[in-house]
Nucleic acid binder design. Structure first.
Length: 864
RNA sequence: GCCUAGAUGGUGAAAUAGGUAAACACGCAGGACUUAAAAUCCUGUAAUUCAAUAAAUGAAUUUUGCGGGUUCGAUUCCCGCUCUAGGCACCA
């Protein structure tokens, strides 16, 4: 048994002081590998993160040993909702919470045995970082896209043009410019909670009520910043040519962008109100009969009111009918008179659209193609009938439509980058670049009212160029924008900043970016494809257009990491009552007004039963709650298999496993578990095999430590080169579970042969990439003075891989009978048949054959 | 509901320009060592049936979620389903 704790600690300390990664030798080949940076939550790093970091470390170490100049950095995406909520709960500034979390994360990352560029670390909430996030905001604000020339121009050019005309006043000019800016103001819908006095995300709402406090939600319109990503759609679509992503990943994004050529109609309701309607095939318009309006999440009642008032529909009958269909809980039939004809309008929540912005018509069950309608309703036609009862205008024109919308870029929160805009007579102006950053004020006694609009110093003095208190007598003071940016603002462009994280004068140095260019391999979850990955591509293209960088795409290759799935458990609380109800009762009694609360696995006894005593001991809040038990006098919890995530409280901390088995075993195990891309259900069952494997290697080498045999053994060299050959293929495929089994197979063979120092040393170099510490220690014990990570990858001598004989599988009626080996010079059909005529098992078959199928170098199949 | 991916022994999985299904592990069973346990090592291990023996063993059939198709041959390609997971725009 080797003492992994001692060894791993020793080599961690030594490696810390050696720089294996990034240097400034710009003549060397470069390799930029990057993991999606984590959001530092209180629960810390989980297995999913660990797999990602270990995977990228393996590739980084491989590339180093191939002579590349490698960068593999880490940073933290610090702004965001969870920290702010936590801050409200405990009345501390989010900055302090984040600081604690990051410390914990770094501690955990250091246990994984990975090489990280610690000098290049970034934090998005650091003012030296978000200064540049704000800088990008201003650049977007002051740019517009010329559709004819397909180029980005400064807004000043447009402004001067309009001014020259001398027709418009400054308000009108501002309105026009707002229609062109790449970041612009527009009203859009949000979930508003009057009681909490805040905007809520879909995730903060359950069954139509806010999760915090269980209050009602209203849908209101708010003036918000939007990014005009739609003007970059063609560029985004063209960009796929330059990147090496999986086909299906590209397809997901392409479909999300959803460019379609359509015909364009008007649909009239009550002769007055019209809905714009896009249709792909003209003839399909005849098939429309029913219309389904899609409500935002679980909020059908509000939608009915909205529709009633907007379209003045006479609602004849409302049938609250709950269908058994999965997502059709809120399907409601409204019979109304439209153009004196009856039409069925269904309302459903099956499309979870927050802003009511998306409108689709599904006209055909078979091929599920969609129409898109503008006026904030979703229409879905299930069956096709001949048209009788709706009136359509003639086709107006053909045009392109997109699924992708401009992105809402403002949040009504505190914990985000402040928007560097102030308002003069209601016209937005940006703070001058040289006065950035516009710092986020520090609020000590943090609570739910801690927002920028409650912060009394939130005014901009254009003379002093800093934030000030309001002073009625001073004419140079203007109110600042009270929104903050969403959390993806900082993650749009972070991969650039790693390369030059301390630069105060520029977003990035030109020389540096010209060398590193882009991320060669980007690793992250598939769930980010339609968000972060798309926004980053947009941002990169914009930065290219304003000459910050000169490459077309940010991520040359992208590999999506499979999700780690694990059981999550939840209990159910009746809305507005302090009652916890057993999950099976909800199903039996079809109860609707409940709230789902995730709980930790440790409170569960067998068969999903809640251990109430244990639960109450650690959750004092529920001490005075009533419990509604089932027939067996138990509280049953809901068990689901979901992705490992902090919000679901089903995360596994890697530290426990590392402490028990060591980093090397942990690393090998995670890679051995399953293919990297595959979703994996977490289990720890098979880890013993890895432990045994490393132990055996240790024992084998330690016993032979003074054996200096260095001879050339053909068989040993053959299996070694075979191993290297197959490992190299796996590096190309980016799949390492079979690499581990290759190492095991090799060791099985070699351990029964004479000890060969030369072969074993090469084996250690190969294995060190996966199990760094044990290999480093053994390398050292074999009297090597330098670190094993300065060694280059062993090179294959192909002479040894050459096979003299060819294997043939002989089949009778597609079933394997025997295997024969043929010399290369005899590799032909007739020779094999002749040979088989002398074989007792086969010769009769050959005589009576109907047909013989011969596949060169593989198979001879005799059909009878 | 729509979009995307996946499904192979008791378990994690391996094998796809269509050609020996189950590599490598875990678990289990038996054995060795030990007073005993743990650890370690060795042997066996997809299922069913048949033959035969003291025993080793041999033979046949079935099997990659379900139902079809193409093919001499399908885990792999095509069509139709089922189930599971992820995304659906303010979680990150």
């Amino acid at each position: 048994m080797y003492n992994f704790k001692k060894i791993e600690h020793k080599w961690y300390k030594i490696h810390k002081n050696i720089n294996f990664l990034k240097n400034n030798n710009f003549n060397n080949k470069k390799y930029y590998i990057l993991n999606m940076f984590p959001y530092p939550s209180g629960l810390g790093l989980h297995i999913g993160h660990a797999i990602g970091y270990i995977f990228s470390d393996i590739i980084a170490k491989y590339k180093i040993s191939k002579g590349y100049n490698v960068i593999n950095p880490i940073g933290f995406d610090c702004f965001g909702l969870p920290a702010e909520q936590y801050a409200i709960k405990f009345k501390i500034n989010p900055k302090l919470i984040i600081k604690k979390c990051i410390k914990n994360y770094i501690k955990q990352i250091k246990k994984l045995g990975i090489f990280i560029n610690w000098n290049n670390i970034i934090y998005t909430h650091n003012k030296n970082y978000y200064k540049w996030t704000q800088w990008i905001f201003i650049k977007l604000f002051n740019s517009w896209y010329n559709k004819k020339k397909k180029k980005i121009y400064n807004i000043r050019i447009l402004k001067n043009k309009i001014k020259k005309k001398n027709i418009y006043n400054k308000y009108k000019i501002n309105k026009i410019l707002n229609k062109y800016r790449l970041i612009y103001l527009k009203k859009s819908y949000v979930n508003w909670c009057p009681k909490l006095h805040t905007v809520l995300s879909n995730e903060e709402i359950f069954n139509g009520k806010s999760i915090r406090g269980e209050y009602d939600i209203k849908i209101i319109k708010l003036l918000q910043w939007h990014i005009r990503i739609t003007s970059y759609i063609d560029k985004l679509l063209k960009g796929y040519k330059y990147i090496k992503w999986d086909k299906n990943i590209k397809n997901i994004q392409k479909k999300w962008i959803g460019k379609k050529k359509v015909n364009y109609f008007n649909l009239y309701i009550n002769n007055k109100k019209k809905i714009k309607l896009y249709i792909i095939k003209k003839k399909n318009i005849k098939k429309i009969k029913n219309i389904i309006l899609c409500a935002p999440s679980n909020n059908v009642d509000n939608l009915i009111k909205y529709i009633k008032s907007k379209y003045k529909l006479k609602i004849l009958n409302i049938l609250k009918k709950i269908y058994n269909l999965k997502n059709y809980k809120y399907k409601i039939l409204i019979k109304s008179k439209i153009n004196n004809f009856k039409i069925n309008i269904y309302i459903s929540n099956y499309y979870k659209s927050l802003a009511l912005n998306d409108v689709y018509i599904n006209y055909n069950n078979n091929n599920n193609k969609f129409f898109n309608i503008k006026n904030n309703l979703i229409l879905n036609i299930k069956k096709h009938f001949k048209i009788k009862n709706i009136y359509f205008s003639k086709i107006i024109k053909k045009k392109y439509i997109y699924n992708l919308k401009d992105i809402v870029f403002s949040r009504q929160r505190y914990w985000g980058e402040p928007i560097p805009i102030y308002y003069k007579n209601n016209i937005p102006y940006n703070i001058k670049e040289k006065y950035l950053p516009l710092k986020l004020p520090y609020i000590k006694n943090f609570n739910k009212n801690s927002k920028l609009n409650n912060y009394n110093k939130w005014y901009w003095n254009i003379k002093l160029n800093r934030t000030v208190y309001k002073d009625k007598n001073n004419k140079n003071i203007y109110p600042l924008d009270k929104n903050t940016m969403p959390s993806f603002a900082g993650s749009n462009w972070y991969y650039l900043r790693f390369l030059d994280n301390n630069n105060n004068d520029k977003i990035i140095n030109k020389k540096i970016i010209n060398y590193w260019k882009y991320v060669d391999l980007y690793i992250g979850g598939i769930e980010h494809i339609n968000g972060h990955l798309l926004y980053s591509r947009f941002c990169h293209k914009f930065l290219k257009d304003i000459n910050v960088i000169n490459t077309k795409e940010p991520f040359k290759q992208y590999i999506n990491q499979g999700l780690i799935l694990y059981n999550s458990y939840s209990i159910y609380k009746i809305n507005n009552k302090n009652i916890i109800i057993s999950y099976d009762l909800i199903k039996i009694n079809k109860i609707n007004n409940y709230k789902k609360i995730y709980i930790n696995e440790k409170y569960i006894i067998n068969n999903n039963i809640l251990n109430i005593k244990k639960f109450l001991n650690n959750n004092i809040k529920y001490k005075y709650y009533k419990f509604k038990f089932n027939k067996l006098n138990k509280i049953i919890c809901n068990k689901e298999l979901e992705k490992m995530s902090k919000s679901k409280l089903n995360i596994i901390n890697p530290n426990k496993i590392i402490n028990k088995y060591g980093t090397d075993v942990f690393r090998l195990y995670l890679m051995f578990l399953a293919p990297f891309k595959k979703n994996k259900i977490w289990n720890i069952k098979n880890i013993k095999g890895i432990k045994r494997f490393l132990n055996n290697i240790w024992n084998y080498i330690i016993i032979n430590i003074n054996n200096y045999n260095n001879y050339n053994n053909n068989y040993q060299l053959k299996i070694l080169y075979n191993l290297i050959y197959k490992l190299n293929n796996n590096y190309k495929k980016l799949n390492f579970n079979t690499s581990i089994s290759l190492f095991m197979k090799f060791f099985k063979k070699i351990k029964n042969l004479k000890f060969n120092r030369k072969v074993i040393k090469k084996y250690l170099i190969l294995l060190s990439i996966f199990a760094p510490y044990i290999c480093e220690e053994l390398w050292n014990k074999l009297n090597e003075k330098n670190s094993i990570f300065f060694e280059k990858q062993p090179i294959i001598n192909y002479k040894y891989l050459y096979n003299k004989k060819i294997k043939y599988i002989i089949m009778i009626n597609n079933k394997k009978k025997i295997i024969i080996y043929i010399k290369k010079k005899n590799n032909n059909k007739q020779y094999i048949i002749n040979k088989l005529k002398n074989n007792n098992l086969i010769k009769n078959y050959i005589i009576y054959n109907k047909k013989i199928i011969f596949i060169k170098n593989k198979i001879l199949n005799i059909l009878l």
